[in-house]
Structure formats: structure tokens, C-alpha cells
Amino acid sequence: MNEIVVESWNELQEALFHDSWMAEIGRFRSRYAFRGLSDKSYDLESALLRLGGDYAELERHLLRNFRKYAHRSDLLEGDSLWHWLSMAQHYGLPTRLLDWTYSPFIAMHFATANIEKYDVDGAIWAVNYVSLHKLLPSRLRDRLQNEGANVFTVEMLNGVVTSLSELDQISDQDLALFLEPPSMDDRIINQYAFFSLMSNPSAVFSEWFKQYPEIWRKIIIPKTLKWEIRDKLDQANITERVLFPGLDGLSDWLRRHYSPRDGELKS
């Protein structure tokens, strides 16, 4: 079964760290990407897809104008498509990218941060990016192997593919990969963040990888467990104050931290 319903904090830890032991090096090193969602019914749809309409055609216009108007010199350290796409995603532009984290605890945070969703079950998706990358065409697989890497950086990917149309033409089938963005700010670093990328902007990631059941799991977090998880994460300092450095993150943390269990702020 790819869907796992946990009933306790301990069961959740076991499910998240399952299959992380690597006997060949004698270490616990998970090869999973994690994405936490406050509602288990949510699919893994990109913000571009959620725009509706002819979003695939809009994508190039969005990116072109983002590049044209972005003028902060401290952010313009690279000029590849993948650098700009990563930066656009990070700053809220709808793109075909999806946010993931290497950290199961940060995924737990995003599954429990929205207290207005405590009346529904949440979920954490886990995808084995090493196994997923074995599905790539040799042109891309060889790049990872030559670098001794498990995930692409923007520089590595640009050495193989320089445009979205070229990515789409590598294979006659939809493909997916994981991409590490540059460390543009503390938010990316603190969230241990990276992205998934589909060659087809119309594809829903969670639908695409169902044909490969061996590479993914969906861990269901019952609504009755959310408060315990949330309180323990706060005690462990996995909070908005850390993951979103700045006054916005501080305010979000304080607002949630002092909210009563019914989710309604006192006047």
C-alpha cells in the first residue's frame, strides 16, 4: 500500500524515516523528498497549473516578464533558465515547479501550520528521488552519474538542457526530476528546500508517478493527531520564525502559537 495512515507521533516517525538505512556506508541517509500538505485531498499540482486556462502558453510570458522586471543585483548571480525559474518560484511566481524539502520535520510543519485546516486530515508525500532519476533518459542520468550526484543543481541541468522546449523534446514521454535551487536566502537554506520539475507543464505530479508505485508513499496524518505534532514541532523550534526569517515569519508564528485549540483568536 502506498498510502499509510499513522495513529501516533511514533508511528509518524517510523513512516517518515522508513528505508533510510544505507548498509553500504553504515549510515541513515534518506533518499526521499518530502512535501507536507494540510489537506490530504490536495493533489501535487503546480501553481502554474492551478492558474487555469492556457497556463502552459502563459508560462513563457510570465518568465520573460519576470526576467525583464527583476532588477535586484544581489539576486542576479546566474542567467540560466533554471536559475530564473528557481528564483521565480521562490518569490511566488506561478511556475511548473513544486516545493519539496529534504527534512521530514519541515514537511510536518507545512502539514500542520494552517490551524484552519485542523478539521481535516493532512498528508506528507514522500518520493524517492534516486529511484525517480533512474527513469530519466540516459542524457540526464549520465550527467548525475558523472557528477556523483543524486539531485540536479541549476548548473548541472543547464549543462544538459538549456530550455523548457528542449526538456520536453528529450523524451516522447513525460518525465520528472528534482532540482536544487541556489541558496538565494536564508529561507531556502532553513527549509532545506528543493524543487520537482515536470517536462510537461500540464502534468499533475501525483498522477504521473502513480505508474511507479515503488518510488513514492503518502503518509496520512489524522486530524486528531495534528495538535500533538504541532506542539512538539514548536518545542523542537520547527516554526515560522525559523523557516521564514524576518518579521512576517515571526508574526505568523506568534499568531498561531497563541491561538486556542478551536482555531479562533480571542478578542
Rank of each mutant, 00 (worst) to 15 (best):
W100V: 12
E147K: 10
Y69A: 02
Q235Y: 14
N10I: 10
S202R: 14
A23H: 09
S259F: 09
Q89V: 01
R141I: 04
A56Q: 13
P213F: 00
E11Q: 13
Q13R: 07
H71Y: 00
W9H: 05
F209D: 02
R256V: 08
V6L: 10
P94T: 01
W9L: 06
S103W: 03
F152H: 08
Y91N: 13
V151L: 15
L225V: 07
A126W: 01
M184H: 03
S73A: 15
A107L: 12
H90L: 05
S206T: 07
F110I: 00
F110L: 12
A126E: 10
P201W: 13
K68M: 05
A126F: 08
P260T: 11
A15M: 02
K232A: 07
R64D: 13
I189R: 06
D99W: 08
F195I: 02
R67K: 14
W216H: 14
D54H: 13
Y42Q: 08
L197E: 06
Y91M: 11
D39S: 08
W227T: 02
D172N: 14
S8K: 10
S202C: 09
A88M: 09
M184T: 09
M108W: 04
R139S: 14
S131I: 12
E180A: 02
H18K: 00
G249L: 03
A47H: 14
A193I: 10
I25K: 01
V130Y: 09
W227F: 11
E147S: 14
Y212S: 10
S202T: 14
R35E: 02
S8A: 03
S165C: 11
H133C: 15
K68S: 12
M108Q: 15
K218I: 14
L167W: 00
L98W: 01
E11W: 08
I115T: 06
D43C: 04
R96A: 07
S41H: 04
Q173C: 00
P182K: 12
L243A: 09
G159H: 02
K223G: 00
W227R: 13
W21L: 15
R67Y: 00
W9V: 00
N10G: 08
A149N: 15
D248W: 00
D43I: 00
T95H: 11
A88T: 03
S41K: 11
E166F: 04
L49V: 01
S202W: 06
S171K: 11
W82T: 02
L140V: 03
E180F: 02
Y55A: 10
S196M: 08
S138Y: 14
G26K: 12
V120I: 14
R50E: 13
L51R: 07
A33G: 12
L81T: 03
Y91Q: 07
Y102L: 11
N2A: 05
N65V: 13
I229M: 09
D119K: 15
S86F: 06
S131F: 04
S171D: 07
D186Y: 09
S8R: 14
N10M: 06
H90M: 07
Q169V: 06
A33Q: 00
L85K: 03
I4V: 07
D99N: 03
H18M: 06
F205Y: 05
S46M: 11
A70T: 13
L144Y: 13
V160M: 05
N128L: 08
A70R: 01
E14R: 13
